[in-house]
């Protein structure tokens, strides 16, 4: 690799950070009316995905968009919105992608059912195989 390429690499590194160079978002810690409200806030931001990050929730992200969305969620909580309404607000704007807990719907039936189905099928296979073994035991008395 030539040095010029290395330079481009450095440039792209800086470019990818341009999203961080926006007008500084509000960094002040949010103030809550009650412990319950704070718990709800923590739970909500844990389950919502930061869209500009690689794979982070809203609670942990330092991206400006995450700051703004946290402020938005805080405001909605104070305004008395329910958790579902807040999630709905996010989904209307960013789609199901924003939810870390995928809703049970047509394109997630398989996701939610597969482990249970596997457990069931595996359990049945296990039962039949144990039965076969038990039969084997009956036919040949123990050593």
């Amino acid at each position: 690799m030539k040095l010029s390429k290395l330079f481009i690499l450095i440039l792209t590194l800086t470019l990818s950070f341009s999203v961080l160079a926006q007008r500084a978002p509000v960094q002040e810690p949010l103030v809550f009316e009650s412990m319950l409200q704070e718990d709800r806030f923590n739970q909500l931001t844990l389950e919502l995905r930061c869209l500009v990050c690689q794979n982070q929730n809203l609670a942990d992200s330092d991206a400006p968009l995450a700051h703004d969305l946290r402020a938005e969620i805080h405001e909605m909580l104070v305004a008395g919105k329910t958790d579902d309404e807040i999630k709905q607000f996010m989904v209307e704007r960013y789609g199901d992608f924003v939810l870390y807990r995928p809703p049970v719907q047509k394109n997630t039936y398989l996701l939610w059912l597969a482990p249970m189905a596997l457990l069931l099928i595996g359990g049945l296979v296990l039962r039949s195989s144990v039965k076969k073994r038990a039969a084997l035991l009956d036919s040949s008395p123990t050593e």
Partner: peptide
Amino acid sequence: AGKISVGPPYFGLLFTWL
């Protein structure tokens, strides 16, 4: 069929039950 995320709430829930 769309873009979705599967995160800690899914894994954590099923892991606990298993």
